[in-house]
Nucleic acid binder design. Structure first.
Length: 398
DNA sequence: TCTGGGGTCCTAGGACCC
DNA sequence: TCTGGGGTCCTAGGACCC
């Protein structure tokens, strides 16, 4: 039997309004109604909107208060991230049952390289059809699929197919598909780059493709200019890379009311450090660089980072470095709306370590983790935090 | 409209060394 | 005498994505 050439071996699978669909699966009364999942407080934003809500102008990242105003019968559901992580694992194991070459792009989307299935399927599109039907049957969740020669085109195809659809961009038909699209559809073109392109009179992918690449490099930087020019011609050589070890891990929070007092800010930093160290130990990571992030009431955001003498995952080490970094930030003139802390330059905590002086603190931290797992996050707090937690909750800060 | 929380990647400048 | 050049590490900020 003669088979069609398997010329579009890359799939992009993207779940449709993922958080909303997980909530709907567990609560059928949410079906067919405009639903938004996200923060419900004064400063909450939409994380995921149903298509009924989108029809009323609701989009993700939009302030929830504004979304409610746009859509009077909007059903607002607060997020249940543990549930979404579980659903994500279920979805990804379906992907991996087709090929080991699965690259997660986020909690609800992945690239699949299915070149290895060419002997089992006549057309890569059939794999997409099968994946979509298994997603429905085994998880109850809808997903859209793009099929193309490379990752970039596959992702554009799945976007175009949404909701609950499949689209193949056939080899040879790429430019025809691509050139009428607005530049904002390209991967890497956000507000700043589309404004820069607009200044050059470029609004469509076709216009971008016929611009001199030197002009693009001059105005957008060498890397961005080259990349966008290539994308405009459908060129994207990035392989599907299943190795997805995290490069950083962080905790941050925006407060319902701004924090005006340094000791409160330090207390929040400590709380974040305890949480961060727990997460790092759970995934078996140490970090070498600690980063602190502060966003002021006027939304100006500053970062401070410090390379530590030794990698760590204890809350104590992180807090000590974090307080030193915080000392370098002028907190007296403006109130603070967000405090964050993170670690980068991660390594596995099973790696051999020289320092022994940290062990006792690791034991303390492990004990704290265990109590948290058994009794919840509020059960054990460092003394400094326990002293201030009352004043924090009085301020309505969660 | 007044902007979450979790990430990745790029650029640019200064320190430092040879 | 007022002045090199390259490489590497570190840091801050910003753009972007879901």
């Amino acid at each position: 039997m003669k088979r069609a050439p398997f010329t579009e071996p890359i799939l992009h699978v993207d779940m449709d309004s993922f958080f909303v669909e997980v909530e709907r699966r567990d609560d059928p009364s949410l079906r067919d109604r405009p639903v938004a999942v996200g923060g419900t407080g004064d400063r909450g934003v939409v994380a995921s909107a149903s298509y009924e809500a989108r029809a009323n102008g609701v989009t993700s990242a939009m302030p929830m208060r504004y979304a409610r105003r746009l859509c009077r019968d909007l059903v607002v559901v607060s997020a249940h991230h543990a549930k979404y992580r579980q659903a994500s694992e279920d979805v990804f194991s379906i992907f991996r049952s087709f090929t080991p070459l699965v690259e997660g792009a986020s909690i609800d989307e992945a690239f699949l390289d299915i070149s290895g299935l060419r002997l089992h399927y006549e057309d890569p599109e059939q794999v997409g059809v099968e994946i979509r039907s298994r997603l429905r049957a085994e998880t109850g969740l809808p997903g859209s699929v793009g099929v193309a020669r490379n990752k970039f085109l596959a992702k554009l195809a799945s976007e175009t197919a949404k909701p609950d659809g499949l689209l193949k961009v056939a080899a040879g038909a790429e430019v025809e598909f691509l050139h009428p699209l607005p530049v904002t559809r390209l991967w890497g073109v956000g507000a700043a780059t589309s404004a820069a392109l607009e200044r050059l009179g470029i609004a469509t992918v076709g216009a971008l493709a016929s611009a001199p690449v030197e002009t693009l490099r001059r105005h957008l930087g060498s890397t961005m200019g080259t990349m966008l020019y290539d994308l405009a011609w459908g060129k994207d050589e990035r392989p599907v890379d299943p190795d997805g070890a995290a490069k950083s891990i962080s905790v941050e929070q925006t407060y319902e009311q701004d924090l005006a007092d340094r000791s409160l800010i330090e207390a929040e930093l400590l709380r974040h450090c305890v949480k961060l160290s727990g997460r790092m130990r759970r995934v078996g990571k140490l970090g070498k660089v600690l980063a602190v992030k502060v966003r002021f009431a006027d939304f100006e955001t500053v970062h401070r980072r410090l390379t530590l003498a030794d990698s760590t995952n204890t809350g104590r080490d992180m807090f000590r470095a974090g307080v030193a970094l915080l000392a370098d930030i002028d907190l007296d003139r403006r109130a603070v709306r967000l405090v964050g802390v993170g670690m980068t330059d991660l390594s596995d905590s099973t790696a051999p370590r020289q320092l022994t002086t940290h062990h006792e603190w690791e034991n303390v931290a492990d004990a704290v983790d265990q109590v948290h797992r058994r009794f919840g996050d509020q059960a054990v707090l460092p003394a400094r935090l326990a002293a201030t937690s009352e004043s924090i909750s009085e301020r309505g800060v969660s």
